[in-house]
Design a protein around this nucleic acid. Structure first.
Length: 774
RNA sequence: UCCGGCGUCGUCCAAGGGCAGGACGCGGGACUUUGAAUCCCAGAAUCGUGGUUCGAAUCCACGCGCCGGAACCA
């Protein structure tokens, strides 16, 4: 049962229910093959493919490849890999925009013939100058008046390659003065003498996004074209292109509709293709699949699972406002998933020798150790235990020893007892230092199982390996690539925000069972984190491990809190910089904007609410209706104002008041009913909605439907009693101190009476009943 | 400045006239042979001001703030 609900799914469900597009649902994931997909693409993939899967539609994979200079076959493969890896399937539905150029050309010819497009020979600079700015209207290009025949001839010449790059473009003829810049005669095709990765040099002109995209959607029969917020201004053009090309008449084509949602942003990383490309080409990372990158290839190599990413995409939701998701959420779902599938093993990242003096050098004890903790069920078929050798020479974590430990320390310290995971409790009896004074070795003895107090003093458990049996491995530890929450914020160079310590490579020693680990294997190194045996670097005998994500470390967090200086700026708890959409400061309380003289006069004359006066003053038609209504009845002017300027206008949306089948007479009648207390305001609104739809007399409607207000105590009281009887949980909540539910109970009474109950009386009765019952 | 979009816990997402809810993070506690996991508890928000309404996060108005838009990119 897919519970994921968001405005996109709601919209689609509504369209489906309404039978729009013949009840069909077709979405598409439309990347341009000019870079590797990243976690932001995953959101789009999960949305488009997920919606289709859940709601019984299909989703196409389409390559939006209309720019020959940036696109490449290898990106096509990377995109396909990513979609498949995430667990989605486009079946036979793989399309290339570049396959549609011929049809797009034909549609363009139609546009020119109908006068909806023309060839413009302005230079790029002049073109720009002609377009105007956001503040001022543009003016027409000389080409705008070119005849269709002439434009057609030029357009054919463009296609034949008879003109150099930039000599001319085909433009839509829309509106050079439109406040929406996208509509100021946008270019549709431009000349580009460059080899396209699929088409070679067979085309010398290439269509632009705003032309290609709607047309491909329509041609493929896409019903819901989901894209990100920055295309909101393009929607008008999207619709224009579909309408004016008449593409929907073609077989299989549809009038698709665009809906925008917020793209994904993650803290401490960059998501734009440009910036990613810069990192890759500048050698700041090892490639598109560098495990520190938010690319799907990088995340995959680091050890992320498709399941975790899908879960993440589900949890972040889909909305219409820009947001920056905390990486902590990503890491949380990752750990959740990894915990279920990773056997626990021991490995020492930064080894320190520990000699167990109580164990003879020739002794070797093999212990049984479970792979899975008590609260994690072993996956079906997975081994549940392995053997672990204990010998005299051990290796422990350097960090687990402190000669002068802070309070609360539970690990190795002079004289202290700790438990060796799966083995025994040991006591540190000696610390050997090298000539530089650094700790070189620890001497310890096994604690007798009978020594209860020593056993009990061992508060901590540490991991270890037998030096002789340990297998070496190169382990890569990753930290976030950038040290700033929003790299490059404020226009600075993001490279300046690179975290110099984003990668640390250590020579680790692992328990012998890992000797046979194969690329792609994953496990948890206890107390360290989740690791993946690197697919690319683990040759025969040489094990390379990538730490996918560290375990949470409550001790480290606590230490950091005590001494923030001791930790690097990067390792400090993630704290997003203030900002984003919500930093909108509350200016000092301000007076409501003053009324215009006309509005003020109106307000004073009729004792109107200021907002109503303003609305009436601003709309002569509404004002006239107000005056007429006033004249037609005896209701109080203030109330008439509210109903005309408030309730009626709200129903109007963009229409003119004269289009409604409601005149001054009806309005006056309605307001009089409310004013006299014959009906409730709620009923009044309902009646207004009804007569706004189909006309008629309010009084007649009220009588026909029996909508008169119930203000008779004796009549309402039993209704209240019944509602309360049926709302046991709510009543209980009230009893336990939640006074707010009283409102909900009043609401229930209102619903039970179809809005006819005198609300004030209902509220009074509800309160009486509740108090009596208590 | 014009056009478009958007403002709910620190973060992400619900509630679309009637109980402001969930998740992550943070804090506290229980448990623990991973300072993990798990469990429990706490704290924490409707951008502002008016209006309509018995009742407003939700409707209306006026503001404020943030994002996007002037590529022959997508």
């Amino acid at each position: 049962m897919p519970d994921a609900t968001d405005f996109v799914r709601e919209l689609i469900r509504a369209d489906l229910a309404a039978g729009k597009h013949g009840g069909a649902l077709v979405t598409r994931f439309p990347p341009e093959p000019n870079g590797f997909p990243h976690i932001g693409h995953a959101k789009s993939i999960c949305l488009n493919f997920g919606v289709a899967r859940e709601l019984g539609g299909r989703c196409h994979l389409r390559f939006d490849d209309s720019n020959p200079t940036t696109e490449d076959e290898r990106y096509v493969r990377a995109l396909e890999d990513a979609v498949r890896w995430l667990g989605f399937d486009w079946g036979e539905r793989r399309y290339f925009a570049s396959d549609t150029f011929e049809r797009l050309f034909e549609l363009s010819v139609g546009l020119i013939e109908r006068g909806d497009a023309y060839v413009c020979t302005l230079t790029e600079d002049d073109f720009r100058a002609c377009r105007g700015t956001v503040g001022e209207a543009g003016h027409p290009s000389p080409g705008r008046s070119r005849s269709a025949e002439e434009s057609l001839r030029l357009f054919q010449e463009m296609r034949r390659g008879e003109h150099p790059d930039g000599a001319m473009v085909l433009r839509a003829r829309i509106d050079m003065a439109s406040p929406n810049m996208k509509l100021r005669d946008p270019p549709l095709w431009r000349i580009r003498h460059a080899a396209h990765y699929r088409l070679g040099t067979s085309w010398r002109i290439f269509p632009l996004y705003d032309f290609v995209h709607p047309l491909c959607d329509a041609l493929e029969g896409v019903t819901h074209s989901l894209c990100t917020l920055e295309f909101e201004n393009n929607r008008a053009l999207y619709d224009w292109v579909i309408e004016k090309t008449q593409v929907a008449r073609l077989p299989g084509a549809r009038r698709s509709e665009q809906t925008e949602f917020a793209r994904l942003e993650l803290g401490y990383t960059v998501m734009s293709k440009r910036k990613l490309l810069e990192l890759v080409e500048g050698g700041h990372v090892s490639g598109w699949d560098d495990p520190r990158l938010p690319t799907l290839a990088g995340m995959r190599r680091r050890g992320y699972t498709p399941e975790a990413i899908r879960e993440f995409c589900e949890r972040i939701g889909v909305a219409k406002h820009n947001s920056v998701v905390d990486v902590a959420l990503l890491e949380h779902v990752l750990r959740e998933d990894l915990s279920r599938r990773s056997p626990r093993v021991l490995g020492v990242l930064r080894p320190l020798r520990l000699t167990l003096e109580s164990l003879p050098a020739t002794d070797e004890r093999w212990l049984d150790a479970p792979y899975w903790p008590q609260d994690v069920a072993a996956p079906a078929g997975a081994p549940t235990t392995r053997r672990l050798p204990l010998s005299r020479e051990l290796l422990v974590e350097r960090e687990d020893f402190d000669a002068a430990p802070p309070p609360g320390w539970r690990r190795l310290a002079p004289g202290a007892c700790v438990r060796l995971r799966h083995a025994c409790v040991v006591r540190v009896v000696g610390v050997v230092r090298d000539e530089g004074g650094d700790v070189a070795e620890l001497r310890a003895v096994e604690v007798d199982e009978a020594d209860a107090s020593a056993l009990a003093s061992a508060k901590g458990t540490i991991h270890w390996v037998s030096a002789r049996h340990a297998v070496p491995a190169e382990v890569r530890l990753y930290d976030r690539l950038f040290s700033a929450p929003e790299p490059g914020a404020g226009g600075r160079d993001p490279l300046l925000d690179l975290n110099p310590r984003s990668l640390e490579v250590v020579s680790a020693r692992l328990e012998p069972s890992l000797g046979g680990a194969a690329p792609g294997d994953r496990f948890q190194l206890e107390r360290h984190g989740y690791f993946l045996v690197d697919e690319a670097c683990s040759g025969a005998g040489a094990l390379a491990l990538n730490r996918t994500v560290a375990l949470k470390d409550g001790w480290a967090r606590e230490q950091a809190r005590r001494d923030p200086e001791a930790r690097g700026p990067v390792a400090a708890p993630a704290r997003r910089a203030a900002g984003g959409a919500r930093s909108g400061g509350a200016p000092a309380a301000r007076e409501v904007a003053p009324l215009s003289p006309a509005a003020e006069a109106l307000r004073a004359e009729h004792d109107l609410a200021p907002d109503d006066a303003r609305a009436l003053a601003a709309d002569s038609e509404l004002h006239a209706l107000f005056s007429a209504t006033l004249a037609a009845g005896r209701a109080r002017a203030r109330l008439v104002g509210t109903w005309v300027a408030g309730e009626l206008r709200a129903r109007l949306a963009d229409r003119a008041a004269s289009t409604l089948p409601v005149g001054a007479t009806e309005l006056a009648e309605l307001v009089a009913l409310v004013d006299a207390g014959a009906i409730t305001a709620a009923t009044g609104r309902e009646v207004l909605a009804e007569i706004a739809r189909s006309g008629g007399s309010p009084r007649a409607l009220v009588e026909a439907r029996g909508l008169a207000k119930i203000s008779d105590r004796a009549r309402l009281d039993p209704i209240v009693a019944q509602v309360l009887g049926e709302s046991e949980p709510l009543v209980a909540r009230f009893r336990s101190g939640n006074a707010g539910v009283a409102g909900a109970l009043v609401g229930a009474v209102m619903r039970a009476t179809g809005g006819r109950a005198d609300a004030e009386l209902a509220a009074l009765l509800v309160r009486e009943h509740l108090e009596r019952g208590a």
